[in-house]
Design a protein around this nucleic acid. Structure first.
Lengths: 355, 355
DNA sequence: CTGAGCTGATTAACCGTTTAATCACTACTA
DNA sequence: TAGTAGTGATTAAACGGTTAATCAGCTCAG
């Protein structure tokens, strides 16, 4: 006894076949010149001994770790799971691993998180920045996922178009009086969504916009938003920019004895994991996370590729701005998911009377 | 021009000071014998040129990557953010990075995910296994987070005690007729919670247990659970094992015009991110993720430490079961969070009449 | 004055892989 | 027959750090 089991490496294979390490490396990577039957033999023994290439060795030599860093403003964000899963999948498909970094909502910590990932040798970073934060040059390729209207953004859901879609859907259902509900006007994403909604409503439609943060600032956290009142005033469509808001509206209406969707329709955004299990289940706009992730990863890998074959130059060797291939921002369409919380507007007669 | 900027390394520092690489390495790591003032000088230039040690180089030599793998049955699980954040934080505190792997709910993929992380050189794995899956030997230290009653578990929330706490809380509020609501009896976690709840209820209490999966199997997905009916039959406490279930119950009661918490109390588990924003906000039991993560990471690092200084042996060099330090499973207490969805039982008179 | 003992630094091997350069050999071509 | 090409393999030098072994110089006891 007393033989510790080291994972087999190239030289083990080389030794057992009586050839050189370089030949084994070439055979397995298909790069140099190796005879067909030797390649075959090497492949065979490699799989026999259960050879697993050491990413570390490879990384040291090639200067590429095969790891992408995923930086989030706040991991605890409810959309993170969808995104992380999509990114992990897209990266794994291209043979990359995903290292996570969290800034826990703290702006200063965002830099720390970025640095930690860079120290670990991440080849590139995917960043979902904190509201309003801009990502400076970090000397390595970066893909930013935020909103199409964020400068420096790489890819994002087309929130504006998402707003248009939901508004148009509600219009076809006969709705004409809209309450548009957002959290805070400081969010690019929310502004895009609301912009899209309002831009799709005809002049004849009646619109009111509610900012939850403002209402709560006056009336205290968790207060009523007064949506039941709006229904009495003839509003039939409650178009929120987040399922979180939609849920809140939904419960407030139910408590007031207002039936959804018979008396009023409620819609959300983001299709959160519970949105399909509440009753009535939520009509919502869903981001195409797999696509977003795929584009982000693709763009990032392209940049990494480019910066490897074409290292950037500086006049004095000092820090110098990294100029990515400047892939123009791409917007990924959102998908309308119709569920139970929305339906035709209550019969027009009633409104005629009210108006 | 035409000088690409490589990140400075040990030999750069060594060259600029006219000393050997080894000395610089020793100075920075505080290992060998280096004079105090030389250490000072080396430290200074190191920070001046912005030296960042290459984890890769270090990893190759030491055989340790400084990276932990986090394997999840399904990243899209709503509790993942809390957990990932806690693990990332705990790992970062000890200088480790976190690589994520997702099996997307697929059992076969779980093995793949594990292998991918191992290939990337993860020093150890933290696994949150899919229901019922057991983790075989993977040749490296592992920490499992599932439920205290899962064999091979390393650390988990004390779900049983959590059930006891919530039951006791409801008892002190005067409740005597309990509806205990779970999703599926196949989950260790849910069984623990329900076991804790029931074990705390006195014989005099009336208890009914509802399994949502079973009800839906008969009546179709998204169907009513019949909780309003239970209220009419005198039940006042709806004790669910997940905030997801609690939300569903809450909405069903509200739709039936039953006031919460005046007419009935509803409680959940897990304190999901939206649980505080619904109205009424949810009373729930929260897992102490930071603590769980801390213990998992600590235990894992201890194992890694141990397996490094004391490599295991095999008789023939073949695969051999990895025996961790067998730290006994530790249970982390859960915390009761009282919010608006629970309160005193309706006046006893009413029940007296019913009983 | 010699050798032991300490201090502060250097040398060189090593981790596992990649890859440019080289070499031995065979097979053509002139 | 010598020179040229091509083929299939090897050699050796990296990559960036760690670390055991070595060494030079100094002090001090015997």
């Amino acid at each position: 006894m007393s033989i510790l089991r080291p994972r087999p490496n190239l030289s083990d294979i080389a030794a057992s076949l009586g050839v050189s390490v370089a030949t084994v490396s070439n055979a397995l990577s298909g790069k140099g010149r190796v005879s067909a039957d030797l390649i075959e033999k090497i492949r065979k023994t490699a799989s026999e001994v259960g050879y697993i290439p050491s990413m570390t060795g490879k990384a040291l030599r090639t200067g590429r770790s095969g790891v992408l860093g995923l930086v989030l403003a706040n991991i605890a964000h409810p959309l993170f799971p969808q995104l992380a899963q999509a990114i992990e999948y897209a990266a794994a498909k291209s043979g990359y691993g995903v290292l996570i970094g969290d800034s826990r909502g703290d702006i200063a910590a965002q830099t720390d998180a970025v640095n930690r990932l860079l120290e670990r040798g991440a080849d590139g970073l995917i960043i979902v920045p904190r509201r309003g934060t801009r990502i400076g040059d970090i000397g390595r390729p970066v893909a930013v996922i935020d909103s199409p209207s964020t400068p420096g953004n790489t890819v994002a859901a087309d929130h504006w178009n998402g707003g248009q879609q939901i508004a148009q859907y509600l219009l076809t259902q006969g709705h004409r009086r809209f309450a548009v509900i957002g959290g805070s006007p400081n969010s690019n994403v929310q502004n895009d969504r609301i912009g899209g909604i309002r831009s799709s409503l005809p002049r004849s439609a009646v619109t009111d916009t509610l900012w939850i943060d403002e209402i709560e600032h006056d009336a205290g956290q968790g207060c009523d938003l007064g949506v039941a009142d709006l229904v009495r005033r003839g509003f039939t469509a409650f178009c929120t920019v987040s399922d979180l808001h939609a849920l809140r509206v939904l419960m407030e209406l139910q408590r007031a004895g207002i039936r959804v969707p018979e008396d009023a329709s409620v819609t959300g955004f983001d299709d959160m994991m519970w949105s399909s299990v509440v009753t009535p289940s939520l009509t919502t706009m869903r981001m195409d996370m797999p696509k977003i992730a795929e584009i982000a990863v693709e763009s990032l890998l392209r940049d990494i590729e480019a910066s490897a074959s074409n290292p950037r130059e500086t006049e004095n060797g000092s820090l110098f701005a990294h100029s990515p291939a400047k892939a123009q921002t791409s917007s990924v369409p959102m998908h309308l998911i119709v569920r139970q919380s929305s339906g035709p507007a209550p019969s027009a007669d009633i409104h005629a009377r009210k108006e």
